[in-house]
Design a protein around this nucleic acid. Structure first.
Lengths: 236, 236
DNA sequence: CGCGGCTTTGATGTTCATCAAGTAAAGTGG
DNA sequence: CCACTTTACTTGATGAACATCAAAGCCGCG
């Protein structure tokens, strides 16, 4: 992990004004407020595999993903449960930032990722003075948690094959927007995500390969028969 | 379903001032605002089994449960998935009220329930002028969605026996605060809640009875060996 | 080079869903 | 209020789905 220093700060110019994500969270934040956010925010770069948030740690910052890909998960002793795999525009700190003092979940980078941190106190201050901002934030938080719940329900109602197909389509449609992609997770992580055993995830992938639904080159997956995969996702 | 008319409105006196739930949502709402909420809110009483919210309907109101017990669920064709069973102080409209135009889930009364409805437009107006209120709301919404996700993870990591034990303890500890209680749901609904088949839920209950962990009198459950049940919930 | 983690496949056993069939309970219409 | 229908509950038997154990190949890394 390393801190990203943006050169423009030296010139007292606010780079955040042009941040891609401004339109999501800070659309209604005035220029003056934006300047103080810009000067106090800290951006970190995380390498693949590095821990971004550890459950149990105190929540001091409002964090959001600027680029990369992360997994949101929870540990129970030896095992892990993956709750969500999120990309930018899709991950906001964690739901609990407004209701908890400590993180309930952990976050780890699946790819090179940049996270922008803003002190919670600043978020509270701005919300206090700018209700438009508070409402935007509410809308975003609501979307994020809603999506996670929806996704958990979708996974829960499927059987093994349906779940694996669902995850492959999730990567293809939502994350990479391509029929061919490199899996950013291990087979074990897919298993932790869909709540099945690693061996059975592998077996299912092999079966899809035999049935000519996908091609497998190690971590690279190529979807050959998308309609077939969609059928499996829908009906097991 | 029937509308509850509160006599006090005739006397131009605000009954909401003393609402038990005011401290949760409207702690920071000023008296004048409270008066307009009070005069425009509509309360409905639902009988056991009546539908409160139907997925797909437009979201017009911010609703919260004043008394009773409800189930939050989603239908897929013939089958249902229960997402959460909620009591007052625990259920706020639905998460999606701030991000969606239509309800994503349905809500049905499990017991005689009173729901208070406030027009969304009013909520937006107050949030706009009163950021304290907006922040309170955010905190509540965050708590609710966080709890649902946490609960889904807890259920997911258990096996059949562990899940049934978990649900029984949920009713005993969180809902009824008693070792003996009448189940507000059918065996089928328990199955839909924990994602198992109805027959196996029944079998597991019977097994708990044989092992002298619980007593069963139709819908009435009496927990005989709470520690035992907790062990099963933890370790299957 | 050798170690540990990831991947793969096979064999085995457990857990769970499904089917079937019957009883009990609860609602429905005459 | 009673016959009738439907829905909820229960148990057993069977097979399918899935986890677990075991063994071996692969790959990256110190």
């Amino acid at each position: 992990m390393q801190i990203i220093r943006e050169g423009s700060q030296k010139f007292e110019e606010c780079v955040c004004t042009n941040c891609d994500l401004r339109i999501m969270f800070f659309k209604n934040v005035k220029d003056q407020e934006m300047k103080t956010i810009c000067s106090t925010k800290i951006q970190y770069q995380f390498h693949k595999g590095e821990q971004i948030i550890q459950e149990g740690d105190p929540i001091l910052n409002f964090s959001y993903l600027k680029s990369g890909l992360v997994k949101l998960y929870k540990t129970n002793g030896a095992s892990e449960q993956i709750i969500h795999i999120a990309k930018p525009f899709d991950f906001v700190s964690i739901l609990s930032v407004f209701s908890q003092e400590k993180y309930q979940y952990s976050v780890r980078a699946l790819e090179e990722s940049v996270v922008c941190n803003i002190k919670m106190s600043k978020i509270f201050n701005i919300s206090h003075e700018n209700s438009e901002f508070a409402m935007d934030l509410m809308r975003r938080m609501s979307e994020v948690s809603d999506r996670i719940i929806q996704e958990m329900l979708e996974i829960r109602k499927r059987n093994l094959k349906g779940r694996v197909a669902f995850v492959l389509l999730y990567f293809a449609n939502d994350i990479f927007r391509a029929l061919s992609f490199e899996l950013p997770v291990s087979r074990k992580e897919i298993a932790e995500y869909i709540g099945m055993s690693t061996e059975n995830v592998i077996r299912t992938l092999s079966e899809f390969r035999k049935d000519k639904v996908i091609k497998i080159f190690g971590k690279v997956i190529e979807i050959e028969d998308k309609e077939g995969l969609e059928m499996i996702s829908k009906h097991g």
